[in-house]
Design a protein around this nucleic acid. Structure first.
Lengths: 109, 109
DNA sequence: TTGACACATTCGTAATTACTTATATAATTG
DNA sequence: CAATTATATAAGTAATTACGAATGTGTCAA
């Protein structure tokens, strides 16, 4: 039995800090592959491979402009992650919530 | 030059579906290591290793009760992930936002 | 105390990942 | 058209990961 589907999930794609940085940069606007790689010390192929992972996770799209490949952020797949994480918000908020309820009760007295 | 800090980040910890399932289960209350492993087909050591990753990421704590290890969710480290993902919300919401503005404008006429 | 239980840890292995070097492709410029 | 630029893909490698088998450790029960 193969251990897991061979292709990049969104969670796996964002597990890597380099790829997270790329997505952040794309949040400020479209960028060419070269521009996305510039902030790193990686070789060009390494950059290209990270971009492929992001593509396969559906987090970016590509379009050709001359000899450049312009990448654009596709944030939609992150919505699932947001939902998943949001579920846990109640737990890290609990302390604040309790404090809130306490304050509510005390001010009512 | 070593490629990356050897120890589990939160992002890496939640990249694995088994570990995400464990965290979800812990969201419903504390569980022993055995209970956390039960839904999976993994061997006991494999479960124990996943739990170690979650521990090292600070996502769970352990306490001994008799011969059981009771695990509890520590959601706080997920807040960072939530913040990171929330930044991108503006991008997947944009379409809805535009629709919203459009509706606002049309109903005003 | 002896055995069974509930776990963790160690070790070996196969799969996967992140990288580099080398090479291919397609567009642009001289 | 030849050289250059921007990028992708292929091939090889080292590190890391996910796992199972074997083993260790503390706790409970008879």
């Amino acid at each position: 039995m193969p251990r897991r589907p061979a292709h990049a999930t969104v969670y796996q794609a964002i597990a890597d800090p380099t790829r997270r940085a790329m997505l952040e940069l794309l949040g400020t606007g479209e960028r060419s592959a070269g521009e996305l790689g510039a902030p790193t010390r990686l070789t060009q192929p390494a950059v290209s491979q990270h971009l492929r992972v992001l593509r396969e996770a559906g987090l970016v799209t590509q379009r050709k402009v001359g000899r450049h490949r312009i990448y654009a952020l596709q944030a939609a797949p992150l919505a699932g992650v947001a939902d998943w994480v949001r579920y846990f918000e109640q737990f890290w908020d609990r302390r604040l919530t309790r404090l809130g309820s306490f304050l509510d009760r005390s001010t009512r007295q």
